[in-house]
Write a protein that binds this DNA or RNA. Structure first.
Lengths: 160, 160
DNA sequence: TCTAGATGCTTGCAAAAGCAAGTATAATGC
DNA sequence: GCATTATACTTGCTTTTGCAAGCATCTAGA
């Protein structure tokens, strides 16, 4: 009987260290985005999601990406991205343009104004990330951390 | 010139390992809560926040806690807790009761039905946490992880 | 005791985001 | 070439949550 869904039968409770790790993660995953968002909002009137879109576009070939690609990178729904890009477009920070190779697709293109804005916002974001996150990882093996955390909530690749 | 707010002047960009760690964390902090929430919702019609409240009450002295205490433990706003407890109370899983030692305070008290419900839901949650999080930490020092992540977004205790 | 301010919680409101339904375009089968 | 199905995105609706305002109660000072 193969299982796509969660197998719940007899799972060992978390031991003390596991419990601590789990609670720390939960708290951080609530608090960090909120703090960073607040800083960005206060200093530049930009949300984290907007920053994320601008940053990803700036790194992309031709400073443009399809909506679906943006959604995938942020692990967000298409509808969320759609509205964020909409908001950025209204402020002139991105343009929307039909995808030449696929008429269904839309490209979000970073404008010069958008790039300039990103460069304004970047230091705030960077400082926040360092201060609230990276700074606390000095006793941790960053690669091991990234390997592990990068796999969170990824479905088992090996089945069994 | 002392700084309560964020100091942004000249911060080194993230190096490759830092960048990886940061991105892994961001993705995990978006995806893990969503997956766990979906599992809980699908299996038992309970949100993560509701689960959190039930679980914390079950561990508390007299199975009761004040609203503010619940909010602090979950790093949530009082308003969110207020509404969640409201929803649980409507389903008979908690009772509300004025705090005898402070007439302004309210206690959320876990009912027997609430405890029974928690015991139903617990295995699903535990399995999800193991599967989506703990399982991936096998190469990581759990204590170091908890120490580090538990400090995320905490303000500098030493000033300077 | 009486007043002023602080604290604990609730509620109105607005923002963000997911789901599901709708629209437009592409790809497939005949 | 035409009909059917799939894909890319948008929009309406709903839920969740934080903030700010409001109300009740507690505490401190005169």
């Amino acid at each position: 009987m193969s299982e796509t869904s969660t197998d719940t039968g007899r799972v060992a409770p978390l031991d003390r260290a596991e419990e601590r790790a789990w609670r720390a993660f939960v708290r951080a995953s609530v608090v960090v985005p909120r703090v960073l968002e607040a800083e960005l909002q206060a200093a530049h009137g930009v949300t984290m999601t907007e920053y994320f879109v601008l940053a990803n576009l700036s790194e992309a070939d031709g400073r443009r990406l399809r909506m679906g690609e943006l959604a995938a990178r942020g692990a967000m729904s298409l509808s969320a991205i759609s509205r964020v890009v909409d908001a950025l477009a209204r402020r002139g920070l991105v343009d929307r343009m039909r995808c030449p190779s696929d008429g269904r697709g839309l490209l979000a293109v970073l404008t010069d104004a958008g790039l300039a804005r990103l460069e304004e916002v970047y230091p705030t974001h960077l400082a926040g990330v360092r201060r609230h996150v990276i700074r606390h990882l000095d006793q941790v093996d960053l690669d091991a951390f990234a390997d592990a955390v990068g796999c969170f909530a990824l479905e088992d690749q090996e089945h069994g």
